[in-house]
Design a protein around this nucleic acid. Sequence first.
DNA 1: AATGAATGAGATTTCATTCAT
DNA 2: GATGAATGAAATCTCATTCAT
Lengths: 218, 218, 218, 218
Amino acid sequence: MSHAPTFSKPAKGWTRRKQARPGEILEAAVSVFAEKGFAAARMEDIAARAGVTKGTIYLYFPSKEEVFKTLARETVSVALAAVAQQVREFKGPSRELLVTLLSSIAAFLQDKDRAMLPKIIISESGNFPELARFWRSEVVDKALAMVTGVITQGVAHGEFRSLPPEHVARLCVAPIILSLIWRTTFAPLETIPFDHHRLFATHLDVLLKGLEPEGSTK
Amino acid sequence: MSHAPTFSKPAKGWTRRKQARPGEILEAAVSVFAEKGFAAARMEDIAARAGVTKGTIYLYFPSKEEVFKTLARETVSVALAAVAQQVREFKGPSRELLVTLLSSIAAFLQDKDRAMLPKIIISESGNFPELARFWRSEVVDKALAMVTGVITQGVAHGEFRSLPPEHVARLCVAPIILSLIWRTTFAPLETIPFDHHRLFATHLDVLLKGLEPEGSTK
Amino acid sequence: MSHAPTFSKPAKGWTRRKQARPGEILEAAVSVFAEKGFAAARMEDIAARAGVTKGTIYLYFPSKEEVFKTLARETVSVALAAVAQQVREFKGPSRELLVTLLSSIAAFLQDKDRAMLPKIIISESGNFPELARFWRSEVVDKALAMVTGVITQGVAHGEFRSLPPEHVARLCVAPIILSLIWRTTFAPLETIPFDHHRLFATHLDVLLKGLEPEGSTK
Amino acid sequence: MSHAPTFSKPAKGWTRRKQARPGEILEAAVSVFAEKGFAAARMEDIAARAGVTKGTIYLYFPSKEEVFKTLARETVSVALAAVAQQVREFKGPSRELLVTLLSSIAAFLQDKDRAMLPKIIISESGNFPELARFWRSEVVDKALAMVTGVITQGVAHGEFRSLPPEHVARLCVAPIILSLIWRTTFAPLETIPFDHHRLFATHLDVLLKGLEPEGSTK
DNA sequence: AATGAATGAGATTTCATTCAT
DNA sequence: GATGAATGAAATCTCATTCAT
């Protein structure tokens, strides 16, 4: 794609604007798609939220569908690679690595816009099977593989009980995903916001206790 | 809604049909809405899947939106009440009750159509805030309250560690919800279907171990 | 037409109903067409007002259009013929004949249902040019011809000033038509009903005075 | 309504067009509504007659109903106010004023498009009671009040016989309204067009003679 | 590069008409 | 003869997309 999103790239001078446009549009698009879903999202809404007019979007993207696909494809991979790097370089007990990894994932998905993307994929998987496939293989499977790797290693080291690692990996992320869904679904209704941070702490507590080998004295 | 079954009429020929129609339409609607989302679902698709034509739907529902709302409102409460009854009547250790309760919930959501409904609510919460509110208070909160009750009781009996019950309740259901999302999102792509049953078993194993009081010898 | 309206025909026994149906339907149709116009009138409304169901109408009329046309064609001619007869037989001064004739017309159109018909024709002339033509030649022209005849005769007898009779004829009926339109258009809004009877009296007063020959001492 | 002309913009190219559009659409709408009535008028017809496509109308009006209402509301009041001014400023005998006033009204309604509007209101009063009420109070009552005023003044001055002025006012306008209805209803069928101008002259002749005080020698 | 007026395909909804009972 | 469930053509309205400016 010639118009990769430039969320991060800091351009300067009056070219800044031109460079930034596609990114601004994508950013606007995430929130609209997350709120309304693909079909109910109107190009005019996205344009308005990006501070441009309908026509402008078509200078950067050939269609609504392409805005959506670009969004879904190009906005995760980078972050995921960074986390993977972190995991590879980590030296220390698997317990600690697991805590670090899950905390990274949880922290990453804490950001509202980033939490929106998985929600969008969940909602639109029926309308965009290719995207679901892409996410499945590029995001979900990779993330799960990382966690599974840590678990496997922990089991090998005798730090965790012997349990199917691909199951445990899912148990590890389940509460994180539930939090994400909760926030994207019920947040606007909430009077007292639920403390997802403390829920995550309890999760780690119960999880690690549940994974401890039988006779361990910790 | 006015399509409560009429008891007196003998209901033969397409009189029988008339009684059944609203149900048939709703059944068709669940699957279409789950697949496409509310906005992308076409009345013609729903009609076709229900074996009627567009116009017929309007004999029973005043609008697409009302089909959707009826669906979301009328299809859960019954089942939930049954489970609640089961919980109230249970005599025995909280551990067992928890296992029974979670298994009931998991089994209930095993059915494809029933799994669809939460997925639909998640996807459309932005477009139908009233429905999100309804589900939040009538379904989610009630279900969580049941689980929370069991946990609280278990903690009081010394069967579980002392942890925030409303956190633990969420940890209990998180893997069930994750399974549900997985199935409704990635199932069509799956070559080897994932064994959610065994995942659930591992979940119970890790969870119960994680909740065990400190010095317990089981 | 095999189903001429039987407003008047008094059938007896249980056949009464069958005989009366077409008339009942037409009667219901006048009021609905007058209220909503042809296009906005729903067969179901007509049926309901006639105390039958949609399907029944089709036993007597092949289509909505035919209901309308039958209505417009078959409901005036009779009455008009009666008035014409009355005029032909009248012996006496033209003044008196004119008063009698206009009073007959005004009285005839006093009935709500009969007032509706001209209103319907006015409203639907664009959609049913054939009907407009029919009414023009069969009703309006004939009625005007009668009045014109009386005027011509009165002028010949020196009872009226010499003025174009086809103009005077229109001046004679104009206030009657205006009353009719007023009633069918603004009646439902009216708090204090306007006294069209006294207006008619004033009309005759001014008109006859206006038609008096120059030097007449009455 | 927001289509008041914007003074500042240079308005060239289709900027000029944008300013003109609502007016063009309304103009097209009068004739279609008058021909078919509200319900039978198709947006596509209106669009075509305005030289645009369906969608364009919706850039300026939110619905068919609103096109209709705007039409009925915004197209009379101005003209009426002008006539009222004329009446207030007139110095001279009531006779002359009456002739001037009625001639103004007749001349105004001579224009085809302007004659259409009352016809539309008459036809659609049943479907749009609020509009009927609006017209009743804003147009009809005001116009009648003007005529009634002139009559009252004429009676006071001894120029007219003592008759109920609100009756006479209606007698004054009745032939004008009849002409209007005739033209909008039967005009398309007419081979030799009726001379409404000469009818109006005869009307004034008969009317003024009819209003003359008893012993007047003119 | 940006705008926003205009388009027209496609969706929802209505309702005259049919037809099995 | 009567019913009313079902149909499907036709209308309104929305909005992605185009393109003159």
